[in-house]
Amino acid sequence: MAPTTSMSRRPSPEAAAPPAIRRKLGVVLIDPLPVVRAGISLLVDGRPDMEILAEAGDGKEGVDALSRVRRSRVVVLVGLGLEGEHDASWLIRTVRERFPSHALLAMGANADPTMISRALFVGADGYVDKNVDPVDFLGAILKVADREMVLQGPVAATVGQIADSIELRRDLDVRLTGREREVLAVAAEGLTARQIATRLGVRERTVTTHLGRIYGKLGVGNRLSAIRMAARSGMVSVGSLE
């Protein structure tokens, strides 16, 4: 049966001629570490029911690779170690937006609850830790393919903390304006009000006004407490706090 339209999606397995076997689950692997990619590729390609469709070492490349994938039933593995402008959060948001039918599994190495909450908040369907048994790792991919929430690894014990962090993030997002969030994110890098002003192209007075409003809305007395709260929610990265 020839495709009748220019739609990129293939006919679903049910619609196709009697399928002897279910189509392999496609996996797209995006992680900054080559050795990790190599290891996961071996694992996935060693299974009869999955295959690696593409891999990439950074977020931008990952999206390019995904736009060439013409398949349904795809799981995108996103390494939380991706950094820079096109970091893991950016990638997860972008995949959610541009490829909403793909399942998204975040993976990290002993990620803390805040990192996991951030990944889930921006759109991951689950999280798997790289330190789990390979069988469990593959099991997590299969589960998430059916859009079932997965939390695999020692982090399962921190479900409560992850939920707390997500709720805090939601509250901060709702309470603060976009501009205020931006100011807070830059403040978290440790910049002075004047430096923040320069970065955002506004006057110093405007920045201090924003900061004052932020403290008021968060019910805190100073910048450090505001940044702590934002860090706990996963809204800003904690690196600069340590």
Binding site: F121, M149, I162, I166, E167, D173
Partner: peptide
């Protein structure tokens, strides 16, 4: 069951934001 609920919770938080 709590993990599944966490998934719903995260989805709803994202939606609300």
């Amino acid at each position: 069951a709590a993990v599944l609920e966490l998934g719903r919770f995260a989805r709803q938080a994202r939606e609300s934001s």
